[in-house]
Simulated assay, not measured.
Amino acid sequence: MKTILVAINVEKNADRLLAKAEEIAKAFDSKVWILHVSEPDPDDYLGLEAGPQFAQDKRVENRKREGELVKRLAAGLQEKNIAAEGVQLAGSTVKMIKEAVRKVNADIVIAGHHKRNFFYEMFVGSIEQDLMEDLNVPVMLVPVKYKE
């Protein structure tokens, strides 16, 4: 198990996920890839800009903050002598995680598990379930809080 991909969503939950990654990385001398998937840009409609300027500015600001978080988390692992890199992609969460697994040749994915009620799962679905079904590598789900 040489490559671990940690899919983070919010900073609050990142510590729990990275603690598990650190534990595995130390045991197997693994490299840790920290992935954050940002919301995708809305599709342009007939060549028009994607939303009003304030919405575009907010998206850029969020991506910058998220990118800085990923770099900071990777640096924290590097300070503990664990090989780590951060990557930020924009798009569908499951699709981007699948792409990252392929690109970095991940042996395991560590992701947060958000407990939701039956009706939410029935109508909206579950990213965790999609990951379990779509990936060809083990997925470790770590219980985390849903709200920021």
Score class of each variant (00 low, 15 high):
residue 1 M to A: 13
residue 2 K to E: 14
residue 2 K to Y: 11
residue 3 T to H: 09
residue 3 T to Q: 08
residue 9 N to L: 06
residue 13 N to L: 02
residue 13 N to K: 05
residue 16 R to I: 04
residue 16 R to W: 07
residue 17 L to H: 10
residue 17 L to W: 08
residue 17 L to Q: 07
residue 18 L to G: 00
residue 20 K to R: 13
residue 22 E to L: 10
residue 22 E to V: 00
residue 23 E to G: 03
residue 24 I to S: 03
residue 25 A to M: 05
residue 31 K to Q: 09
residue 32 V to F: 00
residue 33 W to I: 13
residue 34 I to V: 12
residue 34 I to R: 01
residue 35 L to E: 04
residue 35 L to V: 05
residue 35 L to G: 00
residue 39 E to R: 13
residue 39 E to C: 04
residue 40 P to A: 13
residue 41 D to C: 13
residue 42 P to D: 02
residue 43 D to E: 15
residue 43 D to L: 14
residue 44 D to F: 15
residue 45 Y to W: 13
residue 46 L to G: 15
residue 47 G to M: 00
residue 47 G to N: 02
residue 47 G to A: 08
residue 48 L to Q: 11
residue 48 L to M: 13
residue 49 E to L: 12
residue 51 G to F: 03
residue 51 G to C: 05
residue 53 Q to N: 14
residue 56 Q to C: 03
residue 56 Q to L: 10
residue 57 D to L: 12
residue 59 R to H: 09
residue 61 E to R: 15
residue 62 N to F: 09
residue 62 N to K: 05
residue 64 K to C: 02
residue 65 R to Y: 07
residue 65 R to F: 10
residue 67 G to Q: 10
residue 68 E to Q: 09
residue 71 K to C: 08
residue 71 K to V: 11
residue 72 R to F: 06
residue 73 L to S: 01
residue 73 L to R: 12
residue 75 A to Y: 06
residue 75 A to F: 04
residue 75 A to E: 15
residue 76 G to P: 02
residue 77 L to A: 02
residue 80 K to F: 10
residue 81 N to A: 14
residue 82 I to Q: 04
residue 83 A to E: 15
residue 83 A to N: 11
residue 84 A to L: 04
residue 84 A to S: 03
residue 86 G to W: 14
residue 86 G to Q: 09
residue 87 V to M: 15
residue 88 Q to C: 03
residue 90 A to P: 02
residue 91 G to C: 11
residue 94 V to L: 00
residue 95 K to N: 15
residue 96 M to L: 14
residue 96 M to Y: 08
residue 97 I to N: 05
residue 98 K to S: 15
residue 99 E to F: 00
residue 99 E to S: 01
residue 100 A to I: 04
residue 100 A to Q: 06
residue 101 V to K: 03
residue 104 V to C: 07
residue 104 V to Q: 06
residue 107 D to A: 07
residue 108 I to H: 10
residue 108 I to Y: 06
residue 109 V to E: 06
residue 109 V to P: 01
residue 109 V to C: 02
residue 111 A to K: 09
residue 111 A to I: 04
residue 111 A to L: 03
residue 114 H to N: 10
residue 118 F to T: 10
residue 118 F to I: 09
residue 118 F to L: 08
residue 118 F to G: 02
residue 119 F to C: 04
residue 119 F to A: 13
residue 119 F to Q: 09
residue 120 Y to T: 14
residue 120 Y to N: 10
residue 120 Y to V: 11
residue 122 M to S: 04
residue 123 F to V: 04
residue 123 F to Q: 02
residue 123 F to M: 00
residue 124 V to D: 07
residue 124 V to R: 06
residue 125 G to H: 03
residue 127 I to G: 12
residue 129 Q to M: 11
residue 129 Q to R: 14
residue 130 D to T: 09
residue 131 L to E: 04
residue 131 L to S: 01
residue 133 E to N: 07
residue 133 E to M: 12
residue 134 D to K: 14
residue 135 L to G: 01
residue 135 L to Y: 11
residue 135 L to Q: 11
residue 137 V to Y: 01
residue 137 V to W: 06
residue 139 V to R: 01
residue 139 V to A: 01
residue 141 L to H: 09
residue 143 P to V: 03
residue 143 P to S: 08
residue 143 P to C: 03
residue 144 V to R: 03
residue 145 K to Q: 10
residue 146 Y to R: 11
residue 146 Y to D: 14
residue 147 K to H: 15
residue 147 K to D: 14
residue 148 E to S: 13
